[in-house]
Design a protein around this nucleic acid. Structure first.
Length: 113
DNA sequence: GGTCTGACCGGCG
DNA sequence: ACGCCGGCCAGAC
């Protein structure tokens, strides 16, 4: 029971951080994992996003991999939904990759301290 | 109930 | 520079 709750909190923390991502910015799975103190478990962040589909308040499109690549685009309704939303927020996406990702990169570790 | 995979990342050959 | 491999945790078969 307790273990399950712990895992649940981890997912919840991920959602919480993702929700804090400002419009027009993006972060990476690894950055979130690092902020949560489980940098080695960046995979779990992605896994958490998968479950995040249940909650539409989570801007999963603002979370990409360290390359700024929209690796999770196929998990949306359509493969272009993720790119469309990012572009609508003022970001530039080329070849499924965020242009100037390092510039718009939102690091929770720095922003949230 | 063991095994595999997954929206990742960093290190090593 | 490129490619492979291990590691982390949780869920699906």
């Amino acid at each position: 029971m307790a273990k399950k709750e712990k895992a649940y909190n981890f997912f919840n923390d991920v959602y919480d951080v993702v929700r804090l991502i400002p419009k027009g910015r993006a972060t990476s799975y690894g950055a979130i994992a690092t902020y949560l103190g489980t940098k080695m478990s960046a995979r779990m962040v992605g896994w958490a996003m998968n479950a995040a589909h249940n909650d539409k308040t989570i801007p999963a499109h603002r979370v990409v991999n360290r390359n700024g690549q929209l690796t999770g685009r196929f998990h949306f309704k359509t493969p272009t939904t993720m790119q469309y939303r990012l572009e609508r927020e003022g970001l530039k996406v080329k070849n499924d990759t965020i242009v100037d990702f390092s510039k718009i990169f939102w690091d929770p570790y720095l922003e949230l301290e």
